[in-house]
Structure formats: C-alpha cells, structure tokens
Design a protein around this nucleic acid. Sequence first.
DNA 1: CACTTATCTGAACGAACGCACAATCGTCTC
DNA 2: GAGACGATTGTGCGTTCGTTCAGATAAGTG
Lengths: 129, 129
Amino acid sequence: MSETADRLRRYLEDELEECRSEDLRRRLAELDDLEAVLDDGVVADDVRTLSALGDGTRYRLVRLLVEASGELCVCEITPLVEVSDSAVSHALSTLAEAGLVEKRKDGRWRKYRATDRAKALLTVLDGSR
Amino acid sequence: MSETADRLRRYLEDELEECRSEDLRRRLAELDDLEAVLDDGVVADDVRTLSALGDGTRYRLVRLLVEASGELCVCEITPLVEVSDSAVSHALSTLAEAGLVEKRKDGRWRKYRATDRAKALLTVLDGSR
DNA sequence: CACTTATCTGAACGAACGCACAATCGTCTC
DNA sequence: GAGACGATTGTGCGTTCGTTCAGATAAGTG
C-alpha cells in the first residue's frame, strides 16, 4: 500500500478539473503495474540504493570494487580515497545496507565485493552518457 | 585529472607495504580505463544523477513520468504526490539539471518528460531486485 | 487592463548527512 | 598475556538538503 498510489486512485475517481487531461487519466488507469512500482517498500528500497551511490566517496568505493572485479580489504581501499579509514568503514557499512557491496570475514581482514546490482547500475550509467 | 586516480598512481609506484597485496597492484595496473571512470567530471556527473534520484519525492516524479510514457505538466503531477507545488517545481528543476527529465514550454504549461537515462536506471533497478 | 491560472524563485528553518577524532573490539604474533 | 594491526562504533560538528511560505513572473481570459 502506497501513499502515492492512494493519491492516484483518488485522482482517477475525482471529477475532472481544469488542467488535468482526460488523456492522462486514461493512460494512468491502464497501468496496473503503477501501484506496484510505487509501493512504499519498493520506493524506499530503490531510494536507499540510489542515495547510497549518490555520494562521491561511496561512489568511488563501489567503482574501485567493480573495476577490481574481486574482493578488496579495507586497508587496500583506504589509501585509494582521500578520507579517513573511519569514513571508509562508515561508507562501506552504508553500501552494504543498500545491497551494493557484500562483506566477508577473512581472519584479520574484512573483504568487500561489489554486488551484481552495483555492477548493473554503473554499467547503465556508463552506457547512457 | 582525478584525485582518486592520482592516489592510484602513487599507490602503484609506492613500496609494497603490509596489507596491500601484490595481486591487487597487478590487477589495478592492468586497468587503463580506471582513470577514465574515476575522472572527477564523470564522478560528479554520475553522483549528481544518482543523488537526484535518491530522494523519495524526486524518485516518485520520475517513476510517474516513466510509467506515463509521455509528457505531463506540473499541474498534472502535483496532485499525485504529497508535497506542495513549489516542492514539485524545485524537484523537477533538480531532475532537469541531472539530466533525468526534459522540460518543454507549451503555452501556459511546462511539460516534462523522462529521459532515456532515467528509463534505463529504473529498468535496471526493477531488474535487479 | 485587471484577473486568474500555471509555474518558478528566493528566503528561512529544521532534519539529515559526511567527516574526523577517540575509543573499542577482534585477531594474530611474539 | 602484551602489543600490534585491521576494522568498527559512537559522538560531535559543520554543511547540505528538502520543504514550506511568500512573493515574482509569465501567459491566457474576461
């Protein structure tokens, strides 16, 4: 159940007012998948993913992990960006919550790897520029 | 020229220290496209795009424009989201700067349309969930 | 021209964010 | 067990962000 979908339903049921075209009403009414993609859970999930990547530091970290095409530990990543190791740790944690990287314990180290979702997003960005 | 790429160059030239694997050094050295994708301009551009979409209101606006598969004017969009018309205007302006929507004057109205970049990003998000 | 409609712009303000610093935790080595 | 190393967590601080409100602009309408 989504607030926006609710608004959409009311919109479709309302009287036709100035400026709101009948054409739009018809088009939106035909979209039975619109409510699905406007579901609050789906929206929140995508927004978490996008805003996680929408930061310079985190973007660079993901870029490095994707290009390295393999696992890297924090101590390998830190010298490649211009922030403290604490900031890198915070950033990787945010990225993990967003499903953009995966963590693995390996003795004294924590190895990070980019997920398919991260790779797909960067690929699309590269392709549409 | 990118700060991160600079760091990468220094990293590859440095003496091998504890924790930084020779394997990583070899892998990174082979990537001649890494500097390209870490170019400050490219990073800033992608980050602008991602953080523009990484907000609930703006995400919903783009979603509506993509699903409607055509132009919508501001007064058609506003009743579908739960913020003021001013907030919608601000949001659309941000999205236009990020290259996610395109604006067109049509008499009294301004019509907005999602760009291919926006469609591609939402498609990837839908496909990797 | 006054009046309405559609949209934008510019504050202002509270909330959220990104970072560094300090402290802590787990693992390895001597 | 003491100490070093890799990484995380919590806190505080300055900055950015998203929103609303009020006012401006611009185009149609009577």
